[in-house]
């Protein structure tokens, strides 16, 4: 949590977030500061309602803080209009969702190609990028398959390829193993770890799964909107 690193990819300064529910203000994050440096792999854990998803949404620019600033890859997201934020997201972020969120009517190739349709790449260049991303996740043989023709683990790997294909600065993963069996979850975590270690991708992962969290470089614990950093060794000890 200590802030101040010059190379931080994600910087939260005095961030608070409140929601209105039935005219009652519900605080989710309060006066939060956070630095995530380049190449880090952070697992965010915590009970339901602790603000994990809110943190991810703020870092992704999908939501705006009530107070404070969110800076990602040197851009203060509060300063961007919605249209600029949308464009910025397509250039700097990769998303990995719990339910994979693939378009069911598009093939693996077409799903991975989606973010590249927002770039000026030619069809041929796009095909090269997509094939590279699918090769990294080990699914180059399944590029013509539709999501329904793939297992859950394979679907998630396609989703990871989609998150990778535009070479983002930051990968945001929301419960990436939450819908998978143990073996598939293991494969996905292997892949994320490889992306972090070999390709130096900065990853922020929200998870309930301690086994998944153990694969991160460090773990943050959110309790009622406040960070408590947990040493992985402590997590190991906790079992």
């Amino acid at each position: 949590m200590p802030a101040g690193s010059e190379r931080a990819v994600v910087e939260l300064r005095g961030v608070s977030k409140e929601y209105m529910r039935d005219k009652i203000r519900v605080p989710v994050l309060s006066n939060t500061n956070l630095d995530i440096p380049h190449g880090d792999f952070v697992a965010v854990m915590g009970p339901s309602g602790s603000g994990k998803s809110t943190l991810l949404n703020l870092a992704a620019g999908l939501d705006r803080p009530t107070t404070g600033t969110v800076t990602v890859a040197g851009t203060e997201l509060n300063q961007l209009s919605e249209s600029k934020l949308t464009r910025w997201r397509s250039q700097h972020l990769g998303f990995i969702f719990q339910l994979y969120n693939l378009m069911p009517v598009l093939t693996a190739f077409e799903n991975v190609e989606l973010p590249l349709l927002l770039t000026s790449l030619s069809r041929r260049q796009r095909a090269e990028h997509v094939e590279t991303a699918l090769r990294i996740v080990g699914l180059q043989e399944r590029m013509d398959h539709f999501p329904r023709q793939l297992s859950g683990g394979q679907e998630q790997r396609v989703a990871i390829a989609r998150a990778l294909v535009n070479d983002p600065v930051l990968l945001l993963a929301d419960e990436p193993t939450g819908n998978l069996d143990a073996a598939a979850a293991q494969e996905i975590m292997d892949l994320l770890q490889q992306l972090n270690e070999e390709f130096e991708k900065t990853i922020v992962m929200v998870t309930h799964d301690p086994r998944a969290a153990r694969r991160a470089r460090r773990m943050l614990h959110l309790e009622k909107g406040t960070f408590v950093e947990t040493e992985l060794d402590a997590l190991e000890a906790a079992g």
Binding site: S83, T86, R89, S90, F95, N101, M103
Partner: peptide, 10 residues
């Protein structure tokens, strides 16, 4: 929602 998150505008 996914398309919007990926960067497709309104």
């Amino acid at each position: 929602g996914t398309l919007r998150a990926l960067g497709f505008n309104r």
